[in-house]
Amino acid sequence: MKARVYVSFKPTVLDPQGVAVRSALHSLGFDQVDDVRQGKFFEILLAGGLSAAEARRQIEAMAQDVLANPVIEDYQFELIE
């Protein structure tokens, strides 16, 4: 089983890298870009035989304790069989 975890800044936290990417996109002529938020992406391969519920619980714990800093970041994830 594979998990894909996405981590990004909370909406209230300024993302200066996202702002810099947005202005680069604007200078290339992509005027339709209103906002860019930059984040992190993790692909985690889990051992076979794990139930979906258990995998969900473990990924949740990993995201809370390690992958994201809950003070400034949000996360979401998906499980792929």
Binding site: F9, V13, L14, P16, Q17, A20, N69, V71, I72
Partner: peptide, 8 residues
């Protein structure tokens, strides 16, 4: 928390 400097 400590994040990237405003001016990058």
């Amino acid at each position: 928390a400590l994040v990237r400097n405003r001016g990058l």
